[in-house]
Design a protein around this nucleic acid. Structure first.
Lengths: 187, 187
DNA sequence: CAGAATATGTTGTTTATACAACTTTTCACT
DNA sequence: AGTGAAAAGTTGTATAAACAACATATTCTG
């Protein structure tokens, strides 16, 4: 699973990611150049290209890493999608969106769309993992996970856009029953 | 004067110095191993030896760099050792000693001795540079610089050991007339 | 005191990065 | 539209760093 790597590679990639994240705090994504990143990371510009195809690939990795680090242990090891686990996933999504928009200057909607779809993908993967432990029947799990994750994400994103300041309890009360009912065997 | 370097070298040396300084905050110098430094700097232990002969050489460089960065511009460009410049040098010495003992855990006296002699050397060099701009006669400058620098250092160090908390104004009032009279042509 | 463990240095080889010197792409501008 | 400047990529070569393997030295411990 874990591939051991040359420490130089790990360090260089880490430097690139850190520099990129720092740049994102003050410069819009579209305005960041590879030269900027390379300079800040004290690496040669050509070296950047041995690690990332372009800055979009770098953004992908940064988003993915940040999201993965925010997933609570309980969710990772969850054996079933209980109400509690559901709540945690919803809150995770909410915290991620808030964090992301707090620390990054996203300009064009195209970038926001990239980020969106990636988070949705990770959510889906997370939920799929849990459901496949819970359910014997593997047939519809992908579909259930897709529905559930997009439901959670879209609701949370709306919540973020409309009511930035309010507590998330109400969000939970809206989304939780929605997805729990959807996943229940009754339907 | 300034030699341009491979950025990898600069970065590695920087990493080593930073790691070493951080380690010094919590671990006594004698207890720090090359392995510790290499690990913290995320470099290979063998790489350490391509840059520094041992940890004493590293300590030397760190001390020298820190001291140089603390020298005020006015002192660097001083054309004569006036009372004002003298005061600045005394205060510089005091600040350096305080800083150094605040951030580093020095254990054995042998280390303190190393540090002492190096600071004295740098002080001497600084004063010699100023005096050689001021005086036509170059004959005794080295000796005057040696006397003056060691006077300043020893007085300041005593002051630091005995009256850590008190303001340095009194120190100035003691040392300034001492060295100014010593350097005056009257004697 | 012996010997086990740990730290210090050293060396030959492999590999990642630096760099210069390109070509191609993008984009501002009058 | 067309030109010049800046950015994006690419490639060959030189070198710093990684690493393993080794020898020696130091420190710890029963």
């Amino acid at each position: 699973m874990e591939k051991q790597q040359d420490p130089r590679v790990l360090r260089t990639r880490q430097l690139i990611r850190e520099s990129f994240i720092e740049l994102l705090q003050s410069i819009q994504f579209e305005s960041i150049t590879i030269k900027d990143i390379a300079q800040k990371a004290t690496i040669n510009r050509a070296t950047f290209y041995t690690h990332y195809e372009d800055k979009y690939a770098l953004l992908d990795e940064v988003i993915e890493q940040a999201f993965k680090e925010m997933i609570p242990e309980q969710v990772i090891h969850a054996e079933a999608l209980t109400e509690e686990i559901g709540d945690q996933i919803i809150l995770l999504t909410y915290r991620y969106i808030v964090d992301f928009h707090q620390t990054c200057r996203l300009d064009s909607k195209s970038i926001a769309t990239l980020v969106d779809s990636q988070i949705k993908g990770m959510l889906q993967k997370t939920i799929e993992d849990i459901l496949s432990k819970e359910k014997e029947n593997h047939q519809y799990i992908e579909i259930l996970a897709a529905i559930t994750s997009s439901a959670i994400y879209s609701a949370t994103y709306q919540w973020f856009r409309l009511e930035k300041n309010s507590h998330a309890d109400l969000l939970l009360d809206i989304v939780r029953p929605y997805i729990m009912r959807g996943l229940s065997k009754q339907l």
